[in-house]
Nucleic acid binder design. Structure first.
Length: 913
RNA sequence: GGGCCGGUAGCUCAGCUGGAAGAGCGCUCGGUUUGCACCCGAGAGGUCCCGGGUUCGAAUCCCGGCCGGUCCA
C-alpha cells in the first residue's frame, strides 16, 4: 500500500520553533522528535522504565489524573463530554468500546451527524481483551480496561477547528506545564495509525519508557489498497489515564496507582503476601525491556534481580509467584464491573460471551491462587471503589452480584463435571488434540485437565506453549462473509429503486390513513414506486402492508411492501398495464395493519414493563410483530419466575389502562441521546442525523420507524402467551393484544371444546373429568397387567409341558394369537430359562410375510447353532435372518404353515446329524 | 452467526466395532443394626430427545429437526 503522505507532515511548526530535532532510534529504527540529542525513542522496549526518576509537579492518583486531564482541556476551549457505556450499543460492527473515537463512529466521523461539541474532551472507559493473558505480568502495561482520555477536533471543509500543530502543542503543554515533565524527557515518535476503515499519520508521545499518549490525524479512508483523503479531518487523541497516574505517582506498578487501597485489600482477600517494595521497584524498572509473559525472560530478569539484591532466586520467585495473578484479578474484576454495570448479560454469543470470557479467566486465576474467596465479593469491592465515577455500579449492584454468583456456579459445575469427561478421554493416552477438544467442546481449560490427571494418575501432562493458538487454528475458516440475509428484494430491484426519489411517508404523517391518492413514479417488473404512500414497508420487526392500488380502469393487488433507503417499493401481484405518471388511489388492508400497529405499540409497552420488573439490563435482541401475535426477545440471565411474568403482564395492562399518549418526535440525534440514552437503539441504530423517536412518556422511548396507535388505551389489553429461553442469556416473550387476544382466546376455547366433546364434558368440568379419566386409566393398566401375567404364565407352561421331543431336546413352535411384542419377548426369555433343552420357534404374521424368531435354551444351544437353522431354512424358502448362536430373528416370504413344515424338517435333520 | 461435543432410570453416568436395556446413588419393602455416607436381600422406576432412512434386527449407523453445553466471530 502506498501511503500518500507528505514527508513534511511530521515537521510540525512547534518543533521548528522550539528547536526539536529529528533522530532515528538505534533499536527500533523509528524516527522521533526531541529537544535534546538522544539515540533511542524513549519508549519500551527500547528504553528502561526510567520514568521513576523523572520529576513531576504533582503525584496524581487515578481520579486526579482523570480530572486534571479533563480540566486542562476544558481550560483550553474543549467541552467535556460524558463517557458512553463500554458496550458499543450504537455500533453494529463492534461489541465493545475500544477507544474514545468509537463514541463518534460511524455517524460523526462519516460526516452524517455533527459532534455533540467541537472541540471536545472525554474520559472514556474502554475494554480491550486481546492482551488478557499478559495482564499482571507486565505490571500494568497491559490492561483489559483502561480510560482513554481523548481530545477531539472535527475539521470540516468549511470550518477548521485545529490540526497538527495545535494538537502537538496541546500535548506538550499538558505534559510540560500541567504535569511538570521536563521537556527534554519527551519524545514524539512518528507513526501511522489505521483502524475501523480509517487511517492517518500519528505521533506517539513517550516519556521515560512509557507511551503516555497517541495523537492521530485521521484523514484517509482505507479503500482496498488505496487511501482516499477524507473531507472531514479528525484529531483523534488517546491519553492513557492509568499510565499518567502510574507515571506521576511512581508506584512500582500501574495497579498501585489506579487501585490504591484495593491492592492491599486484594492481597489480603486472596491470601497473598505483598512482595518487598524494593524488589518490586527493581523488577518494574527493568520490566520495560523484558517480555515477562515469557517464562524464560521472567527467569532471566529474576536472575538479574537476585544478583542486585544478593538474595536467592527462589526467594524472589516465591515473593513474585502469585502477585501477578493478584494484579490480573484486580484488573479483571474492574472489567467485569464495568461490563455488567453497563448491562451486558453473560451468554454464549456476542458481547455476552466476552463478559463470560473475562469472568471465567478470572475464576481460573482465582483457582490458580487456591483462593476460596467468591468472585462476587471481589467485584463488590470494585463496585464500591468506582461507584463515584460510574453510578450505574451502585444502582445495579445487586443484579451484578447475582449474575456473578450464577456464572461462578455454572463454571464450578463444568469443572466438577470435568472429572468424568477427562476420565473418558484418559482411556487412551491423552493427545494434544484431545486437550484442545476438551477445551473447545467442554470448556475445560488445560490447567484443570493437568491438575485432574495429576490427582488421579500422579502423572503430569505437558501443555503445549502454543495451546491457545491451536484452539484458534481449529476455528480458522473463511471469514463469514456476512451474507445480506435480509435479501428482501432482488438485486436488480434494489438498483432500480435506489435511483428513484424518496417516497412521501403518509404512514408516518397519519398512521390511520387507509386510502390515498398518488402518482406512479416508476414501474419495474411487478414493483411499483409512488410519489407518496400509506403502505408501511417492512421494518423494525413490523411486516409490510398489503392492499390495492387502483387506476381509473384497473385494480392491482399489493402483496407486500418493502423499502430501499427512503423509497417505498410496492410489490404487486401483477403490474401489467400500470404506467409511469398515472394517478392512482391506494388502499391498504387496514384490518391487518391496525392489528400490527397495536402489536407494535404493545411491544414497546411490554419492553418498558420488562425493564421495570427485571432490570435495565433488559435489551431487545429481536422482535417481530404480525397480525396474530408479537414476539420480543430480550437479554436476561435467567428464566423469569411465574410471579415476575404475571407482574410484567399486570404492569403492561395497567399502563394501557392509564391511557398515555404515544408521542412521535423527530429529534436531533445528539439531543435525543442526551434525553433518553442508548435505550433508544433497542431495535437498531438508524444512520440519520434526525431520528424518529416513539415515546410513551415515563415508560419507554425508542428510535422506531413503525406505525403506532395514538394512545396506549387503543392497545386494549395484553396477554403473555409464551415465555421461553431461546438461547443462553436470551428470553423470548410472545404475547397478543387487541383483537388478536380475542382470537387467541377463541382458539383456546375451541381446543378445550374439542377435548370436552371427546371426553363428554363441559369446559367447566374438564379438569375433574380428566382427573377421573387418568385414574381410570391407571386402574385399567393394573388390570391389564394382571391379565398379561396370567396369559404369559399360561403360554410358558404350555410351551414347557408341550413340545415335541427331538433327540434329548424339545422343540416347540409358538404361534401367538396376540400381537404383543413385549409379551412374546418375555415369554421366550422365561421359557428357555426354565427349560434349557427347549428349542423355541416363534412364528408371527407381519405385513403379509412371516416373522421368524428362534431361541435356544442353554442345553440345546450346546448341540445346535440357531444360525445353522436359518441358513438351512433360507435354502428352502426366501428368508433373511441373522443373530447370535442362541437367538436369531428373520423375515420369511412364505406363509406361516410353509415355514412351520420347513423348519420342523430342518431341525429334525440337524439334530440327527 | 459458525465449528465442535452431548441428550439412556428421579440424579450421575456406562453401554455406541448393530444382536433380548445396565451400574452407582436415591426411592419402596424386609432383615441386620439401633444414629451421624453401615451391611444383606427383594422390588418399583425407561418413548434410550423427536421424526425419517438403512437392516431380518437400531440406544448404537445415515439424514433432518428440537434441546443443552462449549469455543470462536
Amino acid at each position: 500500500m502506498q501511503r500518500v503522505i507528505d514527508p513534511n507532515f511530521y515537521a510540525v511548526q512547534m518543533f521548528k520553533n522550539k528547536g526539536y530535532k529529528r533522530a532515528q532510534c538505534r533499536y527500533c529504527k523509528t524516527y522521533f522528535w526531541s529537544v535534546i540529542d538522544r539515540d533511542n525513542c524513549g519508549d519500551a522496549p527500547c528504553a528502561d522504565y526510567t520514568f521513576f526518576d523523572i520529576p513531576t509537579k504533582r503525584s496524581l492518583g487515578y481520579r486526579e489524573a482523570r480530572n486534571i486531564f479533563l480540566e486542562f482541556f476544558k481550560r483550553r476551549g474543549h467541552e467535556i463530554i460524558e463517557p458512553r457505556p463500554v458496550v458499543a450499543r450504537w455500533r453494529e460492527d463492534l461489541y465493545l468500546t475500544i477507544a474514545s473515537i468509537v463514541v463518534f463512529q460511524p455517524h460523526v466521523t462519516s460526516g452524517l451527524v455533527p459532534p455533540p461539541a467541537n472541540p471536545l474532551v472525554i474520559a472514556q472507559p474502554c475494554i480491550r481483551l486481546e492482551d488478557i493473558d499478559s495482564v499482571g505480568y507486565t505490571l500494568g502495561r497491559h490492561l483489559t480496561n483502561f480510560t482513554m482520555g481523548g481530545h477531539h477536533a472535527f475539521n470540516y471543509p468549511d470550518k477548521t477547528v485545529y490540526w497538527v500543530n495545535e494538537t502537538v502543542e496541546l500535548a506538550k503543554d499538558f505534559f510540560v506545564e500541567e504535569l511538570g515533565v521536563p521537556e527534554e524527557e519527551i519524545t514524539f515518535k512518528e507513526s501511522w495509525w489505521e483502524g475501523g476503515g480509517n487511517a492517518g499519520p500519528s505521533f506517539e508521545v513517550a516519556v521515560g519508557g512509557l507511551e503516555l499518549a497517541t495523537l492521530v490525524f485521521m484523514m484517509y479512508k482505507v479503500d482496498g489498497d488505496n487511501y482516499i483523503e477524507l473531507p472531514l479531518k479528525i484529531v483523534d487523541t488517546g491519553y492513557g489515564i492509568e499510565r499518567i497516574a502510574w507515571f506521576s505517582r511512581k508506584t512500582p506498578t500501574a495497579f498501585h496507582a489506579v487501585y490504591g487501597d484495593l491492592v492491599r485489600e486484594f492481597h489480603k482477600a486472596l491470601n497473598v503476601l505483598e512482595p518487598d517494595k524494593e524488589i518490586l521497584y527493581s523488577l518494574a524498572r527493568k520490566a520495560g525491556r523484558f517480555d515477562l509473559t515469557k517464562a524464560e525472560e521472567l527467569a532471566n530478569l529474576i536472575r538479574v534481580i537476585s544478583r542486585d539484591f544478593g538474595l536467592g532466586e527462589k526467594e524472589i520467585q516465591d515473593q513474585l509467584r502469585n502477585v501477578f495473578d493478584v494484579y490480573a484479578v484486580l484488573d479483571h474484576t474492574k472489567t467485569i464491573a464495568l461490563m455488567l454495570a453497563d448491562g451486558i448479560v453473560p451468554s454464549n454469543s456476542g458481547e455476552g460471551y466476552l463478559a463470560r470470557l473475562v469472568i471465567r479467566r478470572t475464576l481460573r486465576r482465582l483457582s490458580k491462587l487456591g483462593s476460596e474467596t467468591p468472585l462476587a465479593e471481589l467485584v463488590a469491592k470494585q463496585l464500591n471503589f468506582w461507584g463515584d465515577i460510574y453510578p450505574q455500579m451502585i444502582k445495579y449492584r445487586d443484579r451484578i452480584l447475582e449474575i456473578i454468583l450464577i456464572e461462578e456456579e455454572r463454571f464450578k459445575e463444568i469443572i466438577s463435571k470435568a472429572s468424568t469427561v477427562i476420565e473418558k478421554y484418559l482411556r487412551k493416552s491423552l493427545s494434544t488434540e484431545d486437550l484442545v477438544e476438551l477445551y473447545d467442546s467442554h470448556g475445560i481449560p488445560p490447567d484443570i485437565v493437568s491438575q485432574e490427571i495429576e490427582k488421579k494418575r500422579g502423572s503430569r501432562i505437558e501443555i503445549p506453549a502454543n495451546f491457545y493458538s491451536l484452539v484458534a487454528s481449529r476455528h480458522s475458516k473463511p471469514k463469514t462473509v456476512r451474507e445480506l440475509e435480509d435479501v428482501k428484494l432482488p438485486k436488480d430491484v434494489i438498483e432500480w429503486a435506489k435511483k428513484l426519489p424518496p417516497t412521501r411517508r403518509i404512514f408516518h404523517e397519519d398512521p390511520y390513513q387507509k386510502a390515498f391518492k398518488a402518482q406512479v413514479i416508476d414501474v419495474y417488473k411487478n414493483y411499483v414506486v409512488l410519489d407518496a404512500s400509506a403502505f408501511y414497508p417492512e421494518g423494525g420487526g413490523q411486516l409490510g402492508d398489503s392492499g390495492y392500488i387502483r387506476t381509473s380502469g384497473n385494480v392491482y393487488k399489493v402483496i407486500d411492501t418493502k423499502k430501499v433507503g427512503d423509497v417505498v417499493v410496492h410489490i404487486l401481484e401483477n403490474a401489467e398495464g400500470l404506467e409511469k405518471g398515472v394517478e392512482v388511489v391506494g388502499e391498504i388492508d387496514w384490518g391487518i395493519r391496525y392489528r400490527r400497529m397495536r402489536h407494535h405499540t404493545a411491544t414497546h409497552i411490554v419492553l418498558g414493563a420488562l425493564r421495570k420488573v427485571l432490570g435495565d439490563h433488559i435489551w431487545q435482541a429481536g422482535a417481530e410483530k404480525t397480525e396474530y401475535k408479537a414476539r420480543l426477545d430480550v437479554t436476561h440471565y435467567k428464566m423469569p419466575s411465574k410471579e415476575e411474568i404475571e407482574k410484567i403482564e399486570n404492569l403492561a395492562n395497567s399502563l394501557i389502562d392509564s391511557g398515555l399518549d404515544v408521542n412521535i418526535k423527530y429529534m436531533d440525534r445528539n439531543e435525543a441521546e442526551k434525553t433518553y440514552g442508548f435505550v433508544l437503539y433497542q431495535g437498531g441504530v438508524p444512520m440519520t442525523p434526525i431520528i424518529r423517536v416513539v415515546e410513551i412518556p415515563g415508560w419507554d422511548a425508542e428510535a422506531c420507524f413503525g406505525t403506532h396507535v395514538k394512545n396506549t388505551k387503543e392497545v386494549g389489553a395484553i396477554k403473555i402467551i409464551n415465555v421461553e429461553k431461546i438461547a443462553d442469556g436470551i428470553i423470548r416473550f410472545e404475547f397478543v393484544a387487541g383483537t388478536a387476544l380475542t382470537d387467541y382466546a377463541k382458539q383456546i376455547e375451541g381446543k378445550l371444546g374439542k377435548i370436552g366433546a371427546l371426553l363428554g364434558s363441559s369446559i367447566e368440568d374438564l379438569d375433574k373429568r380428566v382427573e377421573g379419566i387418568v385414574k381410570y386409566i391407571r386402574t385399567l393398566e393394573n388390570t391389564l397387567k394382571s391379565y398379561r401375567t396370567i396369559y404369559e404364565n399360561m403360554l410358558i407352561e404350555q410351551i414347557i409341558k408341550g413340545g415335541e421331543p427331538i433327540g434329548n431336546l424339545k422343540m416347540y413352535i409358538l404361534k401367538p394369537e396376540i400381537q404383543d411384542e413385549e409379551l412374546v419377548k418375555d415369554v421366550i426369555i422365561k421359557a428357555i430359562e426354565k427349560e434349557p433343552r427347549l428349542l423355541l420357534i416363534v412364528l408371527q404374521p407381519r405385513n403379509g410375510k412371516t416373522f421368524v424368531e428362534i431361541s435356544l435354551g442353554r442345553e440345546s444351544s450346546r448341540h445346535i447353532d440357531a444360525r445353522e437353522i436359518t441358513k438351512a431354512l433360507a435354502r428352502k424358502i426366501i428368508l433373511r435372518a441373522g443373530g447370535k448362536s442362541d437367538h436369531v430373528t428373520g423375515m420369511a416370504e412364505a406363509s406361516i404353515n410353509d415355514v412351520e413344515t420347513a423348519v420342523k424338517n430342518i431341525i429334525k435333520d440337524l439334530v440327527k446329524s
